[in-house]
């Protein structure tokens, strides 16, 4: 047991790599976010003519679309790390999966909040059971379950292993859930909603949007590396304390 903990409590190579990478990802995130924000929110016209009366609310897309992309991308990262942990028994997989999922939950929550703000004006309601928003809501639930499971055990290694299995089950289920929700949504078209389709994204918006997406991605990598470092330090501390107790 303790030998197992030591095995992934001292991956010196990863820590060296993380230390070297972090300044770069952080700088890239800052640059991309600055360019995207100034260009998208300050300068780029919101499409001419504004796509069917959306007016300036399209600017919400500069944070909504990247958040939605990240919510999915982070889950893919969690699943990949979990697969590495379970299938190839890579010791870092547990740590990386555990470090990533709270970030993904934040992005899913942001997607829901910004989508709701956009919908409040465009759909005339704070929440509609739109297929895409509903899928993100379920994704958010999956993140919550994953986070809760990682913290549910006295032995963190046990929680990490259980959460990895859950992440892989989730990734198999996600396409099925997505398909079911889409199907359900076409069946129950709420009549009271004026405009059901999502926002039309104008060609002029693509370049700043691209910068925002890159910025969000690099932001995620930076925070991921940081959180993984914290997890590793905590694991090593725990292992050392256990060894102290044993001796």
């Amino acid at each position: 047991m303790s030998a197992r903990l030591h095995a992934f409590a001292n991956p010196a190579r990863f820590l060296r790599l993380a230390r070297r990478l972090l300044p770069w990802t952080a700088a890239l995130a800052a640059i991309c976010l600055a360019i995207g924000a100034v260009w998208g929110i300050g300068i780029a016209p919101p499409g001419k003519p504004p796509p069917e009366g959306q007016g300036e609310t399209v600017r919400i897309m500069y944070v909504h679309v990247p958040s939605a992309w990240m919510a999915l991308f982070v889950y893919a990262c969690v699943a990949a790390a979990s697969a590495a942990a379970i299938i190839w028994r890579h010791p870092l997989g547990h740590v990386l999966a555990r470090a990533a999922s709270p970030i993904g939950a934040c992005f899913a929550l942001l997607t829901l909040a910004t989508g709701s703000l956009w919908g409040a004006k465009m759909w005339g309601a704070w929440w509609v059971w739109d297929a895409r928003l509903t899928s993100v809501l379920i994704l958010f639930f999956l993140y919550l379950g994953h986070i809760a499971l990682t913290h549910a055990f006295d032995d963190p290694a046990r929680g990490a292993r259980a959460a990895c299995i859950l992440a892989l089950v989730g990734v198999v289920n996600l396409p099925i859930i997505k398909f079911s929700v889409d199907w359900w949504n076409t069946l129950h078209q709420p009549a009271s909603i004026i405009r059901r389709e999502g926002p039309a994204i104008d060609a002029q918006m693509l370049a700043p949007l691209f910068f925002m997406i890159c910025g969000f991605t690099f932001y995620f990598f930076s925070v991921w590396l940081l959180r993984a470092r914290a997890e590793l330090a905590a694991l090593r501390t725990r292992a050392l304390k256990l060894r102290l107790l044993a001796s």
């Binding site: 379920i138 919550l144 549910a152 859930i177 079911s180």
Partner: peptide, 23 residues
Amino acid sequence: ALVLGARRGGVLLSLLILPLYIP
């Protein structure tokens, strides 16, 4: 099987499983 030995396993189980029941 995942929540064996977890704290508050019953509540945790519903959090893990209910989203997967949606389809």
